[in-house]
Amino acid sequence: MWDLMSRLKSKRRYLIELGVCLALYVLAIRLSMLLLNDGIATGIGKPIAALIPMVPGSGMCWVIVRQFHRMDELQRRIQFEALGFAFAGTAIVTFSYGFLETVGFAKVSMFFVWSVMAVLWSLGMAVATRRYR
C-alpha cells in the first residue's frame, strides 16, 4: 500500500542507505589520501588507491537507482525531465567553458562537472515538481 507510512519508511530507508554510502565515501577519501600522501601506494597501486572512493561512490548510484524503482510513474516522469534538463544543461555549461579555456580561461577540475549537473538536477526537479503540482 502506497500509504503515508510506507512512503515515509521508503524515504527513511533511502536516506539511511545514502548516508551510509556517504560516510563510507568520506572514509574512503581519507584512506585514499593516506595511501597516496604517505607513499604507501606506489606504481600501479597509485591509480587504484586514487579510485578507492569510487567504490562507495558506485554504492550511491545503486542507492539512487533503487529509489527510482520505488517511485510511481509521475515521480519517475519528474525525475526524467529533471535529469534531461541537467544532462543538456551540463553539456551547454561544460562545453561553453571548454571553449573559453581555449582562449585563456583558467583550467577547471573535472570534479566541477558533476557539481554543475547536481545544481541543474535540483533546479530541474523544482521546475518539474511545480509543473505537476
Binding site: 502506497w2 500509504d3 510511481d72 509521475l74 515521480q75 505537476y132 503540482r133
Partner: peptide
C-alpha cells in the same frame, strides 16, 4: 485513492 492504487497523492492530484 492514491494508497489504493499504489501511487502518490501528488499523482492523483496531477
Amino acid at each position: 485513492l492514491g494508497s489504493a492504487l499504489n501511487v502518490s497523492r501528488q499523482t492523483i492530484n496531477a
